[in-house]
């Protein structure tokens, strides 16, 4: 039995935003996280559940010359299956294909994955690699926030309870090669232990630009800026990628401190980074 709550199904975003101004209002889209919370009776008493799942205006995929614009109601399955995503953001397509189970992928949405803000959320490292930004709307106005500064702590973000994530914009990365690594205890229904999403732009065998984002490694998803700048201008090679992995692990420890899992995660993250960069370099060269 779920905890008691009130339910409303607004006809458009405008109405949803008015409803979200109520204290205790909680939006629901796919429900794969919220219904679990309702069953565990973990929400403050008698919330108002605002059902967004029928709002077609939040369910879109558009493309401009330099950007992919994604509606928050796109499901993981839709993103994994979309030729536009496979082509323009292959890291995101790969990440979505691995979320939970087929049933979860059919219901769970991109917006929900972002706003729920699990440190291990699968879509987040690819979004950071693409310098994504989020459009947040409330009854009072609209603002944009970079994905990189959106996540405060595990399950905590900059979004206010009266705001709705209405668009996710990804920068297209032309000429980049991509690499994706995910460590997990089992393939289905697993929660990632470590995620690395990497992208490399090469010029005559040298790295013009490197992008590395890590998930499940620190309290929030992060871009490994120190390793990225260190890689710029260097020649691709196993030794360079190995060293970059070590730098990323050091950044993880800076962020999370030395924890019980550090002796394990430090070398493993370094290895995943090396593998992701190897993959990215092979694609960028090819």
């Amino acid at each position: 039995m779920l905890q008691p709550f009130s339910y409303t199904c607004p006809k458009d975003t405008e109405e949803a935003l008015v409803l979200l101004n109520n204290a205790g209002a909680r939006p629901i889209a796919g429900g794969t996280d919220l219904v679990i919370q309702l069953r565990a009776k973990r929400l403050p008493s008698n919330p108002l559940v605002v059902d967004l799942s029928h709002l077609d205006e939040l369910h879109f995929l558009a493309e401009t010359e330099n950007q992919l614009k994604l509606g928050p109601l796109l499901t993981h399955q839709e993103l994994a299956d979309s030729p536009q995503i496979q082509q323009g953001a292959p890291l995101l397509a790969q990440a979505c294909r691995r979320v939970g189970t087929p049933q979860i992928r059919e219901r769970g949405t991109l917006g929900g994955n972002i706003v729920h803000a699990s440190p291990a959320a699968d879509t987040l490292p690819p979004l950071l690699v693409h310098d994504a930004f989020f459009t947040l709307q409330s009854a009072y106005g609209t603002r944009s926030l970079a994905a990189n500064s959106f996540f405060r702590a595990p399950y905590q973000t900059e979004i206010s309870s009266a705001e709705l994530l209405v668009q996710v914009s990804l920068q297209k990365l032309f000429g980049f090669g991509f690499g994706y690594q995910r460590l997990i205890r089992r393939q289905a229904v697993g929660i990632a232990r470590l995620i690395v999403a990497g992208a490399l732009l090469l010029e005559a065998g040298r790295i013009r630009e490197a992008r590395i984002a890590c998930g499940a490694a620190a309290p929030t998803v992060f871009r490994a800026h120190q390793a990225e700048s260190w890689l710029a201008g260097k020649k691709c090679g196993a030794e360079i990628f190995r060293k970059a992995g070590e730098l990323v692990s050091a950044e993880m420890i800076e962020r999370s401190g030395v924890r019980w899992s550090t002796p394990y995660k430090q070398p493993v993250l370094a290895t995943l980074v090396k593998r992701a960069l190897d993959q990215a370099a092979a694609i960028a060269n090819g």
Binding site: I28, V35, D51, Q103, E106
Partner: peptide, 30 residues
Amino acid sequence: CGSGECGACTVLLDGRPVNACLVLAAEAND
């Protein structure tokens, strides 16, 4: 399991498999 892990509650919603334990009846309107 009541949490979307076991799949015993799977039904097809508009042709797609979903965990019926994680879908509000209200969300199945139409």
